[in-house]
Design a protein around this nucleic acid. Structure first.
Length: 784
RNA sequence: GCCGAUGUGGUGGAACUGGUAUACACGAGAGACUUAAAAUCUCUUGCUCGUAAGGGCUUGUGGGUUCGAGUCCCACCAUCGGCACCA
């Protein structure tokens, strides 16, 4: 018989599904492992080879851990609310409910054709009212704790998608989804107070087993800096300007102040400002610039002096000028700075351009000068004392509160009611979910109002508190809402009384390994940690950090080295490879491509190599299936080596080397006498990687039941150590020959044998041996 | 500008705590089988000098530590990712 994957794969997929092999139990006595992979956004384009990389890696890990005797939960669901799904539906001219259902069906089919061992009994779908009921309920917990609030402020607005965006969704000044330049717009929005958790989000990172670069990226995003708030008095007015600075020690060098063009003090000082025309023109200009424009022009800083206004430096008591400039941001700190041109490059540029005075107040040794009573102090000590005298110490974060409302149809309705008498009233728990009404027209309006606002029968409700006329909140939640807690629902997906039963959560959490993309580091990964920490503080979940270990994967680029996208036409679809070579080949090839966390260009050329390996394995198993061969010494050694190497590779997430190890094994034993028992061990090891063909091998070798639930073989350390060892012989550190000799031989003996080798003696020639470096059982180096 | 990562054959990549650099795979070349092709199998394959035996060189560049460096240290270059007038 020949290896023909097409025939066997469907058969085994059906078998696994029927026997529910991969369903996991709550409260099993076995040790639990919760393996999670970021759930997909079921787009219309279908699954591509990039998705598969982490699915396959997570699947191998899950299968391995089951085989090691753990109760493994490995669930999947659908993150189906949000912009792309809605845009796709608009483009196709169908309801998002319908297109989403179609896409999910298609994704599921593709996923199943890969033989991934997901536990489908725990499937969740963020757009299912039974699911988003709890998303809404959780939102109300934030609301009740004053962590969800409404405010009108300047937010990021995508003119193409016609919705507000969170800070995290703006990349290079463009919309993360569609790439359109983001504008600033003054709008009423819902916010989640993530800034209240800024410090906890930093602190929590420490205990986590995450790659350092990922932790660092989150930390930088949160952006803690320690400094001080200092107030400067406006001369002749009973008004003050508060500035934030990280270098209060340089206050004696603060020769002017700069306010952001949006600073509220400006309108209050209007009558004092002699050049108001000029100032208001500058304010207007700054308002119309996008963030990108504002920072793109970084070479030339611009600003306008407020003529007729000056401030008093609290340290020097000098009168200093006040300027406005758009290099100062209203959204960071206090929106105003004290400029110290001699110790800050930006202030220096500005001061040089506008000929403003500069004064050096810290010398090269880090001691203060020209600073009155603080002279000769070390700058760090001065920082403390000056803060004490002139201001208050302050910790500032770059993190902004999370803009949590979207003016779009396809999201969870925010479960609040606006009552003219009672104010904002939460929808009572018994009335949840607030279902998304089915409508004909759901295109974004572009007016800043959600399309839901136009549906009067839905919008007009009775106030739950007073029974009077009231209106529903019409904004919806962002795509990130449903994904901020989905890992909790998997623990108890059918619960009707709670988002998940606490006992089940206690059993499963935290997640042992979380597979996902690098691109979510400052989005989903940060958001969901925030939700979890909040829920932990409320006593609703048992752990403060949900993800014990994070395993990021590098993205797979198209063959042209560019990001895979439909418009570029470089999307690699897995279906064709499955059809030609089978799922097992594709699975192993995805892993074989390269290190899991490394970005890589897709290149199909190597697929055939993996296929050949499976074919050769097939021949080997077939030849030995009915034989009574015993293991040769080499075969015995090789199988123990294989078990160890594969096990180590999975633990270290070096899947590419695991695949190599299998190939090396087959190459090494193909000419050897090999027993059925040894082949069975090989097959159990192979099963996590190539489960379909492994089931077939298992049967051929007379194994019972599914190979995917067999116990992982144990390697014997003793068998890995052979009686002899091969020495490396060096002369002056240069390789000159090998020597095979009994393990544990004495240095004298090795030296004697080594000096019998021609290449060694030639290299030494007539020189005198000055020193011998001897590493037992490994190496001998003659220094001459 | 700041932070982080990476740099090894024609290509993807391997190398444990410093100890035979180039495992494994692709591609290429030669051969076997075949009427032929595909598939499969066998051999060769870092560069270089040499008919050969054998030698020299090689992990982005330049230094250093060491008996010995892809691996450790210093400086630089290139590429990728993140942040970005964040005071």
């Amino acid at each position: 018989m020949k290896y023909s994957p097409g025939k066997i794969e469907k058969k085994w997929q059906k078998f696994w599904s029927l026997k529910k092999v991969y369903f996991s139990k709550n409260f099993s006595k076995k040790p639990k492992k919760y393996i999670l992979v970021e759930f997909p956004y079921p787009s219309g384009a279908g699954l591509h080879t990039g998705h598969l990389r982490s699915y396959v890696a997570a699947d191998v890990t899950s299968r391995f851990l089951r085989s090691k005797g753990n109760e493994v939960m490995f669930p999947l669901g659908w993150d189906a609310f949000g912009l792309p799904a809605e845009n796709y539906a608009i483009k196709m001219g169908i309801q998002p409910q319908i297109s989403t259902a179609q896409n999910i069906k298609n994704f599921k089919k593709q996923i199943n054709s890969l033989g991934l061992s997901f536990d489908w009994s725990r499937e969740v779908n963020t757009t299912d009212p039974e699911y988003y009921k709890w998303t809404q309920w959780l939102f109300l917990q934030f609301f009740k704790q004053d962590l969800a609030y409404e405010a009108t402020s300047l937010i990021n607005w995508c003119p193409k998608d016609k919705t507000g965006l969170a800070n995290e969704e703006v990349v290079d000044g463009k919309c993360e989804r569609c790439g359109t330049l983001v504008e600033k717009k003054e709008m009423r929005q819902w916010y989640l107070r993530i800034t209240k958790y800024a410090q906890k989000l930093i602190d929590g990172l420490e205990s986590l087993d995450w790659p350092e670069p990922v932790k660092l990226q989150q930390e930088n995003w949160i952006g803690r800096s320690e400094g001080a708030d200092i107030e400067f008095e406006i001369a002749g007015e009973n008004k003050r300007v508060k500035v934030f600075t990280t270098r209060p020690d340089t206050i004696f060098g603060a020769t002017y102040l700069v306010l952001a063009p949006e600073h509220p003090l400006l309108s209050q000082l209007k009558s004092n400002i002699r050049n108001w025309d000029q100032v208001s023109a500058y304010i207007h200009e700054a308002k119309n610039k996008t963030d990108l424009q504002r920072s793109a022009l970084e070479k030339e800083k611009t600003g306008v002096e407020l003529k007729g206004v000056s401030a008093i430096n609290p340290a020097t008591k000098e009168l200093i000028p006040v300027w406005i400039a758009d290099y100062v941001m209203i959204s960071y700190g206090t929106g105003a700075i004290m400029a110290v041109p001699s110790h800050d490059v930006r202030d220096e540029q500005f001061a040089k351009r506008y000929k403003l005075p500069m004064r050096i107040v810290v010398n090269e040794k880090g001691k203060l000068i020209s600073s009155g009573e603080f002279d000769n102090l070390d700058w760090q000590e001065a920082k403390k004392r000056i803060t004490q005298k002139f201001g208050t110490s302050k910790i500032q974060y770059k993190l902004r509160d999370w803009v949590f409302s979207r003016q779009r149809y396809w999201g969870e309705p925010i479960p609040l009611i606006h009552c003219p008498d009672c104010g904002i009233v939460p929808v009572p728990e018994k009335d949840l979910p607030v279902k998304l009404p089915k409508v004909k027209k759901y295109e974004p309006t572009g007016t800043g109002e959600s399309p839901l606002a136009a549906i009067e029968s839905w919008v007009n409700v009775k106030c739950p508190k007073c029974g009077g006329k009231a209106k529903r909140e019409t904004n919806t939640m962002p795509q990130w809402a449903g994904s901020s807690w989905y890992y909790l629902r998997y623990a108890d997906p059918k619960n009707k009384k709670r988002f998940a039963d606490l006992k089940s959560l206690k059993y499963w959490l935290p997640i042992d390994i979380y597979f996902g993309g690098m691109e979510h580091t400052t989005l989903h990964l940060l958001y969901s940690r925030f939700w979890n920490q909040f829920l932990f503080d409320q006593g609703l979940v048992p752990v403060s950090e949900p993800y014990k270990r994070r395993q990021p994967h590098g993205i797979i680029l198209g063959e042209d080295g560019e990001k895979m996208s439909k418009s570029r036409g470089n999307v690699a679809n897995p279906d064709a490879i499955i059809k030609q070579y089978g799922a097992d080949t594709l699975r192993m090839f995805e892993l074989f491509l390269g290190p899991h966390e490394q970005t890589i260009s897709w290149n199909e050329k190597g697929v055939v190599g993996v296929y050949r390996f499976l074919q050769r394995s097939w021949s080997l198993v077939e030849e030995n299936a009915s034989s009574k061969n015993k293991d040769s010494e080499k075969a015995e050694f090789e199988i123990h080596k294989l078990i160890k190497r594969v096990e180590d590779a999975i633990n270290d997430m070096k899947f590419n080397t695991a695949v190599s190890s299998f190939m090396e094994f087959i190459n090494a034993v193909s000419e050897e006498s090999i027993s059925k028992e040894t082949l069975k061990k090989f097959v159990v090891c192979l099963a996590p990687f190539a489960p379909h063909v492994s089931e077939e091998f298992w049967k051929m070798l007379g194994g019972k039941g599914s190979v995917t639930i067999q116990k992982w073989p144990v390697y014997d350390k003793v068998k890995l150590v052979s009686q002899t060892t091969e020495y490396v012989i060096q002369v002056n550190g240069k390789f000159r020959g090998n020597l095979t000799i009994a393990r544990g031989s004495a240095e004298e003996k090795v030296k004697e044998e080594a000096l019998k080798i021609d290449t060694v003696t030639n290299a030494i020639a007539n020189a005198k041996i000055r020193k011998i470096v001897f590493v037992p059982d490994r190496l001998i180096n003659f220094v001459v």
